[in-house]
Design a protein around this nucleic acid. Structure first.
Ligand code: MN
Ligand code: MN
Ligand code: ZN
Ligand code: ZN
Lengths: 140, 140
DNA sequence: TGCTAATTAGCAATCGATGCAGATAAGGTT
DNA sequence: AACCTTATCTGCATCGATTGCTAATTAGCA
């Protein structure tokens, strides 16, 4: 995802308006590696801008996704997660604390036994214990 | 997942009862490769046993999953899918018709750049077009 | 045949997400 | 700077998938 400044320009030239709510979300998402849910994002946004609506968070996330500035991923946590990192990568989910980490796979795994299927995308979800949780053994 | 006959024995020895509803679901799930949702399963079950409750389908699916007879997978279709194939495998989802196919990957892809994460499981979801849809170009 | 605990069906409730509409404000125009 | 058009915001209703709850039923054993 681009910088808040770049996004401001991009939104305006796309006919979209740049509101204080959106500027806040731009800042909160930029370089954010936590893969937040809409609700998590709304929580932290609410502390900086009391009254901001969860609906607005969803709306802005949808806009950003449609512009290709972020991707929405599904890692089995029940709710969608949003990722400003739009590079081709995968994810590791901690079964203990729920943290989602970026994973880069050297070689894309090939299909075996499905000749007629033309693959356009592949996403790997690893499950296990993150460094913190496997070390201490007691997180959340 | 084991045969309906084996499941009957397994359920009884686990203190669970074997009802006509469950026997029907055992049969509908055995060797089922369609990765149905609870709702899809309920639809076909309803034709053979009018009045069977969706709640009962969910309950039986939960019981089977807890017994390790099937796994529930999440492929981004919005609802959970149930798979009587409990072997270690992955899935290919058709973006056109939504069909879910089994995929067997020869070598498990290695992690890169995440030393401290101990992986216990990995699941790959491929997206693209299935044989039928890429051939005809018009399904659903 | 009886007893008792498990199951069923129906309905309420929950949760994440989206639809809707009136009030508001962004931002280009005069 | 005042104005106008249109997108946006918020609150609330709605929706789909799933789970909670409970009275009535039934499986399965004694
Ligand atoms: Mn990521
Ligand atoms: Mn499968
Ligand atoms: Zn962890
Ligand atoms: Zn298809």
């Amino acid at each position: 995802m681009r910088s808040p400044e770049d996004l401001t320009v991009a939104f305006r030239s796309a006919g979209l308006k740049v509101t204080p709510q959106r500027q806040l979300l731009f800042r909160l998402l930029h370089d954010n590696t936590t893969h937040p849910t809409a609700d998590a994002l709304h929580h932290v946004a609410s502390e900086l801008m009391p009254g901001i609506s969860l609906r607005t968070v969803y709306q802005t996330l949808t806009d950003l996704a449609e512009m290709g500035e972020l991707q929405s991923i599904e890692v089995g946590s029940g709710s969608m997660r949003f990722d400003p990192n739009v590079s081709d990568h995968h994810h590791a989910v901690c079964d203990q604390c729920g943290a989602v980490h970026d994973v880069y796979v050297t070689h894309a795994p090939e299909l075996h036994g499905l000749d007629s299927f033309s693959v356009s995308d592949a996403h790997i979800v690893y499950r296990g214990l993150c460094g913190l949780c496997s070390a201490t053994g007691s997180h959340r």
